[in-house]
Structures are given as structure tokens and as C-alpha cells.
Nucleic acid binder design. Structure first.
Lengths: 228, 228
DNA sequence: GTATACAATCTTGCGTGCAAGGCTGCGTCC
DNA sequence: GGACGCAGCCTTGCACGCAAGATTGTATAC
């Protein structure tokens, strides 16, 4: 597997590619990301790989264990609660701002995102659907035009994909279609207060779909998994 | 200048040391951070320096310009507004949580912080006072026991120190003594609602002390500074 | 069959050196 | 004196190789 040897990979593009793969659950939590393996896959030296992994560790998507290697992060139950609490602090106000700044182009893009997510689901591409679902939120943050908060939300959304991989218990689609449609309606009406309220509800709904009972942590090794 | 050759510097400790120096305004915005220079100063190779600089760039404290080098970041007026808006979203609720979780040890630590800040001011050590003032906020975030939000707040506080370096217009001490004391009182009474309200006011007061009129950006070079 | 010790192999940590790009200084021309 | 071009030097980008640490496999003892 040598990915697109003709493409010029930088640490930023490698990090983004890996993040995308993590987001789509192609690289599940706990996956080992070996430097040599990645260097060979991307056709670059380990120097660039290391920089990419460092970047991902700063976003909490990858855990670097000294002398052991890099692994896709495995958020704890506590991490999960924290991430959604942080989202609850940031995203409702962001949705409010987005509604007030919404352009027709923005609206069209959000609609297109929902349609693409449906297509992905219909095609059985759950990873892609998850990514697009997260992108809906990321786009709202972008439209709100506050890059500092957008950066935080972007990180939280990516981390959410890991949490969903580990703790999602609902069989249905990831974000309820109805919730995204209702938000779209509020945006179309430039109704900030409604958008804010809907985003609050939507995030609560997401948390409710996670199995965060005080169960033991996800198994981190075969030994642990076989203990039961 | 070879700093403590006997000490074993890692990229994490170098990054922390640089961040501390930035926070205390010993490394002002715009300062060039050359790889070779830092490597010699810390007695390490450039490899470690690069990792440290990369870490600081992820915290927005350092700007990496390709083929040109690393520079202490220079937040724009827009950045300044964004940072304090983000703080306004996160810190009041965090103060509320901290009040509810406050222990006597926590209280003592916050008191000690205020006292140390006063000592620094009396000794004319404004940089140190600024750092301690920021630490007061960071401690509140730590006490609130939500590490995800704490991480964001920590980054925002550090970035605030750069903003203060560029845009602070008040002659008085950095955070009004009265504001920190009032918060301490609310914490002593475990009054979450009051702590939340006081933190909101405090942050508004901080923003009001910044000169964020739509003036031209801070000069980024001698040429620009001499244009007037 | 199980436990332990040790050697071999694999992977990471990180120093070093070379190529590429940017900056500065000098010389020339107008 | 000012503008422009070019060479030389400085700094960054990043590949590579070696040392250190972790993991795995094998042999031995009970």
C-alpha cells in the first residue's frame, strides 16, 4: 500500500488524511500507527510522519506512548462526558451566530451536506455518513465566523467520532435526520434563538444515545477483553 | 546563554519553558525563535526544538512561517475579540463548577496566588504578576475538574497574555485586585451563581481594558513602524 | 505443561548532515 | 544617491542512521 506516490505529502496533509480516516472509523480506536508503516504507505520519511502524529496528538486523536508508539486514541467514559459538555457550552451559541450570518450559499451547502449524508447511508457507507454528519456541525461553526471557537468545535467533533465508535448504542443513523432538518429550517428563517435551542436539544439527544453507564472501560488489550 | 546544561530538556519541557517566557512577556510578540539559537541555548539538538515549536504553534503561541522560521505570535484585533468571546463562553460556567467543588486547599491556593501576584507587583515584576494573574484563572479551571474545557481555557489564557502585550491600555494592575477577591469570596461561600456572574463581569472588564478600536494592526516590521 | 531467562528483532528517540529556500551585502549602472 | 542584480551566507526542511528501549521468540528448568 503506497498511497499516491505522485502526490506531495506534507505533515499537514498526512495529519488531515489520518484524521479523516479516524473520523470515518477506518482507523478504529486503539489502532497502532507505526512510524515506518506510515512512512512507507505515504512514501515519505519518518520525520514527516512524526510531525503529523504530533499534530494529531495535540488534537487528542492520537495517543503517543513513549518508546511504544502512536495509537488512535481511546476516549474514556469521562472523556466522553467532557467532550459533550464542552460542545454544549460552545455549539448552541455558535448555532445562534450562524443563523444570524446565514447566506443562501451557506444554506445550500448545509442542504447538500444532508443530502450527501443520506446517500452515504443508503449506500451503506456508515463511516462516510458519520464524517458528513460531523461536517454539518463543523460547517455551522465555520458560518458563525469565529475561528477560535471553530477550532475548538472542530477538535471536539473529531473526538466525538472516536466516542461514537466506542459508545454508540443506537441502531439508527448517527445524528437524527429530523434534528438537522429542524436546524436547517431555523437557519433558513435566520432564527438565532430557535437554532440555539435546537442545537442544545440535539446535543442532549446525542449524549442520550451513548452508553455511558458506569461500565468498565473499553478493553485495551486482548488480556483485558478475555478477563470476563 | 546555555540554560542549565545539567538539566535534561525534552520537547515538552522546552515548550513549557518558552510558553512561560512568552506569558511573562520576556519573549514579546513577533520575536524570532531560531532553531539553532534555541538548540544552543538549551543544549539540545534541533530535532527537539522543532517538536517544541510545533507544540507551541498548535497552541497558537508561535507562528511557523515556512522557510522563514518561527515567531512569537502576534494576535490581530480580531483574534483578541475572538479569544475573549471564547473565554466568555467557557469561564463563567467553569467558575460556577469550581465554586461547587471548592475545597479548603483549593481556596488556600487561590489566596496564595493573589498574595504572590501582589508581591510581584510590589517588586516591579510585571511579567511575573501577569503570569500569576493568568494562573488564577487556570487554577479555577483546574478546580472545576473538566480537563477538556480546562485545556481550552489554558490555551486562551496564554493567548490572552500576547493580546495584553499588544493591546493593554490600562496603567493599573492587570486583573483588578477587587475582581479576584470578589471571586475568592464567592468561592469561599461555594456560591456558584455568584461566581459565574462575577467571572462574566471580570471578563467584560478585561476586554474593556484592551484598546481594540479599529486601529491599524501592530507594526510587524521596522518598515511598517516607520511609515507614519 | 508452565514459568522464567535470555537473545534477537523490531520500533522509537533523536542527532546530524545535506539540499533548498530566504536574506543580506556588495557591485554595477543610471 | 538610488535601484537593481547577483553571489554568498544563513536558516529551515527533512532524510538517514545509530543508540536505546520494548517486544517477541526460543531454550531451559521444574
Amino acid at each position: 500500500m503506497n498511497k499516491f506516490e505522485t502526490k506531495h505529502w506534507t505533515s499537514d496533509t498526512v495529519a488531515a488524511d489520518l484524521e479523516h480516516a479516524i473520523h470515518e472509523h477506518r482507523l478504529p480506536p486503539g489502532t497502532k500507527l507505526g512510524e515506518d508503516e506510515l512512512a512507507e504507505a505515504y512514501g515519505i520519511s519518518r520525520t514527516i510522519v512524526r510531525a503529523a502524529l504530533l499534530a494529531l496528538s495535540h488534537r487528542r486523536l492520537v495517543e503517543l506512548k513513549r518508546n511504544r508508539g502512536a495509537f488512535v486514541a481511546q476516549p474514556t467514559v469521562r472523556d466522553a462526558r467532557e467532550v459533550f459538555e464542552a460542545r454544549a457550552l460552545l455549539e448552541p451559541r455558535t448555532a445562534h451566530s450562524a443563523a444570524e450570518r446565514m447566506t443562501d450559499e451557506d444554506l445550500a451547502l448545509l442542504r447538500s451536506n444532508i443530502a450527501s449524508e443520506h446517500e452515504a447511508l443508503d449506500a451503506g457507507e456508515n463511516g462516510r455518513a458519520l464524517f458528513l454528519s460531523g461536517q454539518f456541525h463543523a460547517e455551522i461553526a465555520r458560518i458563525a465566523d469565529q475561528t477560535t471557537v471553530e477550532g475548538f468545535i472542530s477538535e471536539l467533533i473529531s473526538r466525538s467520532s472516536l466516542i461514537i465508535a466506542l459508545y454508540w448504542r443506537r441502531r439508527a443513523a448517527l445524528c437524527e435526520t429530523q434534528a438537522h432538518h429542524a436546524l436547517l429550517e431555523a437557519f433558513a428563517n435566520r432564527d438565532g434563538a430557535l437554532a440555539e435551542q435546537l442545537m442544545k436539544s440535539h446535543l442532549l439527544d446525542l449524549v442520550a444515545s451513548l452508553d455511558l453507564r458506569n461500565v468498565t472501560q473499553p478493553p485495551t488489550s486482548l488480556r483485558e477483553a478475555l478477563k470476563r
